[in-house]
Write a protein that binds this DNA or RNA. Structure first.
Lengths: 129, 129
DNA sequence: GTAAGTACATACAAAAAGGTAAGTGTCATG
DNA sequence: CATGACACTTACCTTTTTGTATGTACTTAC
C-alpha cells in the first residue's frame, strides 16, 4: 500500500507524527504496545466478557494487571465497562466502536505472528549456525 | 488448556494460541509490543538506514535503547544488519522479508491511531464530564 | 589540537512494570 | 459455619526497563 519510490515527502509527513516524541499518538501507542492490552483486546473480540472470564481466558495475567489494563483501555475509550449493582458483583467488559477498530489492527498483527511463527523459529535457528 | 467454549470452537483454537502463556508467539509479541520496536520498524519501512540516521529520525530514543531494539529485531529475523569494515564505522539496517511483513501490520496499527487520533482525544474529553 | 562524527559497549542509578498476598462485603453452596 | 465466587483495592517487594554518562578507536574538519 505504500509507494517508496515516489512522493517520499508526503510519506514522511504522514508517518512523521509517531516518530516525533511530543505527538499525542505516541501516548496511545505506548498504551497499546503492551502485552496485556493486546491480549485483552484480542480476547474481547470474541464478545462481552466478565472480569473473571477474562482472567481465565488470558493465561498468565494477574488480577492487578488485568484491572490496570482494563482501566487504561477504558480511559482511552477502547473498552466499555458496565457494572450491574447486584449482590455478587457483575461487571461486563466489551469493545467500543473505536475499540473494535483498533482491535482489528491488533488482531491482524497477532494473526500474522501466529501464521508466520514456524518461519520465524526456523530462521532463528539457521541464524545461530 | 481447557476450552469451555461451546459454539465458537474453531475461532477459539485459532486465537487461543497467543492467549496461552507458554505459546512461543507470546515471546515474539512481547518483543514487538514495545514502543521502540514499533518505531524502528515504521522508520525502516522508508528503506535502509544507518544507526545515526535512525537515532535522529526516531525522536526521543537513546543510543542504548536503539542498540538493544535493533539487536532484538535482528535476533527475531526482522532486521538485517550489514557492517562495512571502513574506518569511520558504517553500518546499515534494513527490514528482511519477514520484517517487511510484520512491519506492514505494525504500520497499519500506527496509521489507524494517527487517523483516529482526533476521535480518541474527543472521546477522552467527553468522558471526563 | 580540539571537537565532532561514526557505532557501539558498559556501568550505575532511577523509574516503571509486574508478582504476591491480603483485605473488602455479600451471598450461595457444602 | 467455613469456604469460595465475585470484582476489585491496597501494600509491599522484586524484576525489568530505561536514562545518563562514560569510554573506545579512528578520522575529518576547523
Amino acid at each position: 500500500m505504500s509507494q517508496k519510490t515516489t512522493g517520499k515527502l508526503a510519506e514522511a509527513i504522514r508517518r512523521g507524527e509517531v516518530l516525533s516524541p511530543d505527538c499525542p499518538s505516541r501516548e496511545i501507542l505506548k498504551h497499546v504496545t503492551s502485552l496485556w492490552s493486546v491480549l485483552v483486546m484480542v480476547a474481547l473480540m470474541d464478545g462481552t466478557h466478565r472480569f473473571s472470564e477474562l482472567r481465565r481466558k488470558i493465561g498468565g495475567v494477574s488480577e492487578k494487571m488485568l484491572t490496570q489494563t482494563l482501566q487504561q483501555l477504558e480511559k482511552d475509550g477502547f473498552v466499555k465497562r458496565v457494572s450491574y449493582p447486584v449482590v455478587p458483583p457483575h461487571v461486563e467488559y466489551s469493545l467500543t466502536t473505536l475499540g473494535s477498530g483498533i482491535s482489528e489492527q491488533v488482531e491482524a498483527l497477532t494473526d500474522w505472528i501466529e501464521i508466520n511463527l514456524p518461519t520465524i523459529i526456523e530462521l532463528q535457528q539457521t541464524q545461530t549456525q
